[in-house]
Design a protein around this nucleic acid. Sequence first.
DNA 1: TAATCCCTTACGGATTTCCGTAAGGGATTA
DNA 2: TAATCCCTTACGGAAATCCGTAAGGGATTA
Lengths: 221, 221
Amino acid sequence: MFKKILIAEDFQDTNKGIVNALENRLQIEEIQEELYCDKAYNRFKLAFNEGEPYELLITDLSFKEGPAARKLTSGQALIKAVRDIDPNIKVIVNSMIDNPVEINPLFTDLKINAYVCKGRNGLNELVTAIQEAYQNRTYVSPQINLNSANTIFELDKYDRMILQDLAEGLTKKEISEKLKRQNISPNSESTIDKKVSRLFDAFGAKNIQHLIAKLIKEGRI
Amino acid sequence: MFKKILIAEDFQDTNKGIVNALENRLQIEEIQEELYCDKAYNRFKLAFNEGEPYELLITDLSFKEGPAARKLTSGQALIKAVRDIDPNIKVIVNSMIDNPVEINPLFTDLKINAYVCKGRNGLNELVTAIQEAYQNRTYVSPQINLNSANTIFELDKYDRMILQDLAEGLTKKEISEKLKRQNISPNSESTIDKKVSRLFDAFGAKNIQHLIAKLIKEGRI
DNA sequence: TAATCCCTTACGGATTTCCGTAAGGGATTA
DNA sequence: TAATCCCTTACGGAAATCCGTAAGGGATTA
């Protein structure tokens, strides 16, 4: 079993719950818990340079700002930074996000080994995830259906940009002018009009404010 | 010190962290943890009826749906239900919400004794909150400034209702018709037009979608 | 008691939105 | 090679939005 695990989690009560479970249920010998991404990164780097690396990183995704300036502001940034040091480090994400569209890239882009969704069975799932990761198997909390991520209408970068501009109060005319200034194509007012209409159909929205409201609530913009 | 405490928290890792701290740092004799509001309510009611009531309720605010149907879907609902049984029950809310506008009503309406914001110092604050509540003193996590809640432009019920309808894609004309059907006054299209314009000014929004986007992101609707 | 304030309501003009129709052109398919 | 598909772009009509002006009326104030 893993002997040396690093935990990055900014909630103290959650942190203690995890440490408690790892000690009592998995008898992990060496557990280091950090509340800040930067500190977790420094811990990881130091241990790696001393020839006694951490074998597993367990991290949350969102980290509240603290009093000190931060280089690494999220779990995703921490994973990337840590992978620069050790490309083969095993990573488990333990977060409250349950949207497959947001979880999928953690596997495809960040190559995590397991995803545990915080919930009523979260510690049990985390214990299982650690065991599976040790056996080189991928694990995802059972209630998460990653396959649905591929059937959900996904916003591309262009659509998202338009939507963000609309949410900022710009008119379609203003967005068109902005895209023309930035040499981004396509950029006519009609194109934007048409694309927004197609998004109405895709998301079942009646007008711009309905669409914006839906997408913000779903965490897409 | 309290001898019998009931905890309602739907994340297992957080739950265990809290129980661990209460046992090790406060030597609380009897701690009951529940993952569901309904179960926490039933526990409370049963203990009260047996003449051995819980002295303190520590609850989160948001609870994910589970497989079973729920009567009580939130910490707020649980607090209200529990207060119906014992109006003098002491309550500590332990949640990740840090918006004073959302925290203030917990004190003014639900009469909670303490609010602990989940964070890096969360367990320490929770321990302090329990001690303060025992001494009949109010406690709020230090980083929360409740006084700022009173300077923030607050939406009244009418405004909120209009905004929610706009976010649902209804036009001002449709909202006017709806208010007339429901005999809610005022209800003219012009009034709605004027009120929305005043909200533009109050929140610095350029149009409806800008306003809706801001308010959803701020957690006001 | 009269003046003032502010809300509700109406109206209208300019702009934007929503949606349908249509043309051009590049890529794909038969 | 011709037909088809789909995107981009344009245009126009009806509806909605945005915003200014104005009147009526209830409550407040001098």
